[in-house]
């Protein structure tokens, strides 16, 4: 009978340690957290509450621009400057959305953005998965040199490559085309780096067992390694999709004057041109351009945050 209270006291600790899938990857649960999870009444701790309040304020401040962007997009034009401080007005209006959808060929731009983002995501994965596999499990003689090149490529500021790449595309006649937009973005340095980190932590014994069973090099990647890494590969794909969708400078340079305009560039064009003072329609366009990545983020939030944190620590 005397054992019972102890068991009750310990159990929540175990549960707390076990649940976060990322906790194991990041050096186990944090003791500052787990030690506190005991179900014993705790005294009021002012540090905890100070931290909580500061964090809530920061999170609130970070969301202010997002709230106003949406707020202005559903605010009747008349009220925009009469009550600029209130982010949301009732009743909301859809007039700006209607106006933007009518006035701009948004579907066309969305399609371009989609092809661009998907092309870069699929292309980078096709290049990075085999490369990361070779650099983590095949141990080629030039592996360290290749990995060194991958690391160096990550550190070259993007702006340095723009001029020569632009000239190269011009020579190939690919300016203002979707392939021209996609090809120079297929430098998969970060993808290789991240996947290699994850592949390296996969037990060698399992791969070797597959080797003994007669699996070829390709089968070991395709049937053993990849199925075990669905989560990081999916998170990487989402990351690549979002960051490509959000690209601005390169699409503006390469596809700025054509039918291959992407959504982000089109919205920016609208802002510096006709939409400059039409805040309602402009914010409606901005909200529409933001929606796909924010939705993706909400569905993949956990996997994304975990993959980033782990990649950062192991890196």
């Amino acid at each position: 009978m005397t054992v019972n209270p102890v068991a009750v006291d310990v159990d929540p600790v175990k549960v707390d340690l076990g649940t976060p899938s990322s906790a194991v990857g990041i050096a186990g649960g944090h003791p500052l957290v787990t030690l506190r999870s005991r179900r014993r009444p705790r005294p009021f701790r002012w540090t905890l509450w100070a931290a909580r309040i500061l964090l809530l304020i920061s999170a609130g401040l970070v969301l202010v621009p997002v709230v106003y962007q949406f707020g202005l997009s559903v605010k009747p034009s008349a009220g925009l400057f009469s009550a600029p401080l209130s982010p949301l007005t009732w009743p909301p209006t859809a007039e700006h959305y209607a106006q933007v959808l009518e006035g701009l060929p948004l579907w066309r731009y969305t399609l371009n953005s989609l092809v661009f983002a998907l092309g870069v995501t699929v292309g980078q994965l096709l290049l990075a998965v085999p490369a990361a596999y070779a650099l983590s499990h095949l141990r080629p003689r030039w592996g360290p040199a290749v990995f060194g090149a991958v690391l160096i490529s990550l550190m070259v500021p993007f702006v340095v490559t723009y001029l020569p790449n632009y000239l190269l595309l011009a020579r190939w006649g690919l300016l203002n085309t979707l392939p021209g937009l996609i090809l120079p973005m297929l430098t998969a340095g970060y993808a290789i780096f991240l996947l290699r980190q994850h592949f390296l932590s996969f037990p060698r014994e399992i791969i070797e067992a597959a080797l003994v069973d007669g699996a070829t090099t390709g089968q070991r990647l395709w049937r053993v390694l990849l199925p075990a890494h669905r989560a990081p590969v999916a998170a990487l794909a989402v990351y690549l999709f979002i960051s490509t969708w959000n690209q601005f400078v390169w699409p503006q340079l390469v596809a700025g004057r054509s039918e291959s305009l992407t959504l982000t560039v089109a919205v920016q064009r609208f802002a510096s041109g006709e939409g400059g003072n039409a805040w309602g329609p402009l914010m409606a366009a901005a909200t529409l351009a933001t929606l796909p990545t924010v939705l993706l983020y909400f569905f993949m939030r956990r996997a994304l945050l975990d993959t980033f944190s782990e990649g950062a620590v192991k890196g």
Binding site: L72, I242, Q247, T264, V265, Q268, T290, Y297
Partner: peptide, 11 residues
Amino acid sequence: VIAVSVGTLIW
């Protein structure tokens, strides 16, 4: 996850 170019417009 918001495009910088788009997110900057509200600023």
